Simulated scan of single mutants.
Amino acid sequence: MSARLNWLRAAVLGANDGIVSTAGLVLGVAGATTSFSALMTAGIAGLVSGALSMAAGEYVSVSTQRDTEKAAVALEKEELAELPDVELRELTALLQQKGMSHATALQAARELTAHDALAAHSEIELGIAPGHYTNPWSAAIASALSFSIGALVPLLALVLSPKAAIVPVTVVAVIIALIVTGVSSARLGGAPVGRAALRNAAGGLLAMVVTYGIGKLVGTQL
């Protein structure tokens, strides 16, 4: 259940990144030019490059985590082979920390070790289930998809709004989307909803104002 919540939270945050970064890019260009083709090019380029960047970053991050987990399990396997008594004492102590008496913890540790020593020691000592590691490919794909879904918000606002109202319509659409992702993230994390939604919307609005202002400034100099 906790793993599922972590994935959902990561998906919401990925969508949030897609909304903010793509909206900032589009509005930055909008500050410099009213060309619809330039705005669409910037938006699509932002979606593609952002999704690929998110996927690559997640793949590298999860691959590193996976390698670390495998190395920790391999070390645990070596220690079980070389120092079984020490490992038994460690497992007993960990079980005692969970509220067992010494006698009960020792008996449980012996039974767990006899059943599957590596699984018992890895899961209780390391919090890792041998053979069940995070898949970097699924993490990369999920990250790219969530970013792309978020990036579609400013792009759809750009396509569907009248040419004269592109900027205000995009800003409103993005703020609404950020409120939704802020509320979703807060609920998944058990945090206050109102504060999270306000913080998320304010951060996105600040990003759009800054990038639009930079576009205006740069546009007048060219």
Rank of each mutant, 00 (worst) to 15 (best):
L112G: 13
L52W: 00
T92C: 07
V86S: 11
L206T: 08
P84A: 08
V12W: 10
V169D: 07
A151M: 07
R4G: 05
G190N: 12
G131Q: 03
L8A: 08
G57Q: 11
R4I: 00
V159F: 12
A72V: 12
T92G: 04
S2Q: 03
F147R: 11
L160V: 12
Q96M: 15
V169H: 06
P154G: 05
L118V: 15
E123F: 03
G182I: 05
P84D: 01
E76R: 02
G127Q: 11
A164N: 09
A119N: 09
G50T: 12
I176G: 00
V180N: 01
F36R: 12
M54R: 13
A202I: 04
V180K: 00
E87D: 10
G131H: 06
A38K: 15
G215Q: 01
G50W: 07
K77A: 15
G219N: 05
V29Y: 02
A196G: 08
I175V: 13
G127H: 14
V153I: 15
A196P: 03
L52D: 10
A103M: 06
V210E: 02
L145N: 04
H115Y: 05
V172C: 08
I149V: 15
V20W: 01
G50P: 13
K77G: 15
T41L: 00
S148K: 07
A71I: 12
V218G: 13
E82F: 15
G213L: 01
T220F: 12
P168K: 04
S161C: 03
I176P: 06
I124G: 02
I141P: 04
V171S: 08
H132A: 15
V169N: 12
S21H: 07
A108F: 00
A177E: 04
S49P: 11
A55P: 01
V183E: 05
A186M: 07
A197M: 02
T104F: 02
A140D: 07
T41R: 06
A202F: 08
E78R: 03
G50L: 08
P84H: 04
M40S: 12
L8G: 01
H132K: 07
I141T: 05
L52V: 01
W137H: 15
G219W: 01
A23M: 01
I149T: 10
L198G: 07
V183F: 06
A109F: 00
H102F: 04
A32R: 00
S185Y: 08
L118Q: 15
G203R: 02
I149G: 05
M100I: 09
A32L: 00
A55E: 14
P192H: 03
P192T: 00
A3C: 03
L5G: 09
T41V: 06
Q96F: 02
A173V: 11
L47Q: 09
Y59P: 14
V20K: 05
Q96C: 11
I179D: 05
T68D: 10
V62L: 09
A72R: 14
A30W: 07
D85S: 05
I19G: 06
V193I: 04
V26L: 04
E87H: 10
K98H: 10
T22W: 02
A32Q: 08
P162Y: 04
V62Y: 14
V210Q: 04
H121S: 07
R110A: 08
L112C: 14
L13T: 04
